[in-house]
Design a protein around this nucleic acid. Sequence first.
DNA 1: AAGTGGTCTAGACCACTGA
DNA 2: CAGTGGTCTAGACCACTTG
Lengths: 229, 229
Amino acid sequence: MSAAGRMGWRTVRAQVHAAILDGTFAPGQKLPRDSDLAARLNCARSTVQRAMQDLARGGIVERRRKGGTRVRPDPVPRASFDIPIVRAEVEATGAAYGYRLLSRVLGPPPPSIAHRLSHTGDGAALRVEALHLEDDRPYLLEDRWISLATVPEIRDIDLTAISANEWLVQNRPYSRCKMEFSATVATDAQAARLGCAVGAPLFAMDRTTWRDASAITTVTALAAPGYRL
Amino acid sequence: MSAAGRMGWRTVRAQVHAAILDGTFAPGQKLPRDSDLAARLNCARSTVQRAMQDLARGGIVERRRKGGTRVRPDPVPRASFDIPIVRAEVEATGAAYGYRLLSRVLGPPPPSIAHRLSHTGDGAALRVEALHLEDDRPYLLEDRWISLATVPEIRDIDLTAISANEWLVQNRPYSRCKMEFSATVATDAQAARLGCAVGAPLFAMDRTTWRDASAITTVTALAAPGYRL
DNA sequence: AAGTGGTCTAGACCACTGA
DNA sequence: CAGTGGTCTAGACCACTTG
């Protein structure tokens, strides 16, 4: 770690990171305080601040007021990736995107879904099943519940023309989102819709979105066998 | 969006985000330039900068030099979560963590693995199969290949005492990491080791880590049925 | 060529928190 | 209570990109 030419915050980050990787700063060890690093690297403290904050965000170091900055003994693999819009994901592969509405039912959701939507009991919901296609082959099967309390307009939208997903994204931006991933095997009905064998392994994504404290929608999407995230 | 009391960058971010959610700034629309917002909110431009940069990182807006800041029409769900260390993940549930080495073999990896490790042909590797336990029940089955070219010391480590995962994390910090998730069904051998039925759905995580350009290890971990991420 | 975001600086004060 | 990170400011210059 030397104080050569101009030090941008990315350079500072790289230098400190390199020093951690090569053992100059051992796991658990305390790093010099920001102002000292700034002096040694010949830059402003705020530049070091920026760099260290980025390392902290990446799980490389841990910072505490008065406690100083320490190398994390367990570099947390902080995965961060974009969940692509289905249409974009399909079209990115060069394939043609298609969409088909399978069912659309108004009614009270079962308890498990009502709980996810934080429904207090009286709330009705719209259930939509749809299939996303990649070059006419089944790609993603979604089973969605939309809260009519939060999104009453959805009742009048023609969901054969636009997917609920896209309509919601464009008309009901959400402020919070929770996702879960798991694995299941295809039931008879799912296999028929996805065009795969019964018992085939399916990658499942559960997503619930909120606008402030009001749940908007909860969806379970099943990907055709072979899907990788 | 009013200029009330003290405006920290989090406050600025919240105000702008709220203005986007309530439609003051429509999707695709251009926002005022930073200095204007700063004037309107009665704070320094750099404070607005920080807030806007955070919104951009969250996929809410898109910024371009000279092009200005625009509301993203497709609020990208940017999932960001920590991949926990297995031991920590188990112990967080209050359960006892256990670990068992199943096999340990030195030899040339098959082509598919050699490719993932960027081996040029001559490189040998260490293959380790291990089982992570939660209260003595199978939790995660890992099948790992470690590059002896990058980590020769691993040959002399007693992997019955410490898991390869933990040893590597503590002794070979990595600078890059690639992960993939998918779903499979249990084979005979996997079912026996995980104590589940043949054909049960398994959540699979593939991870490869590098130190600079040298691959360190590649691992496929299978979670027992019921696992959710 | 000009406009807008990106970064750097020097200095100040605040907010946690460990000793 | 004292030390360290967190944030704010005002100003300057740079870098990219669009018209």
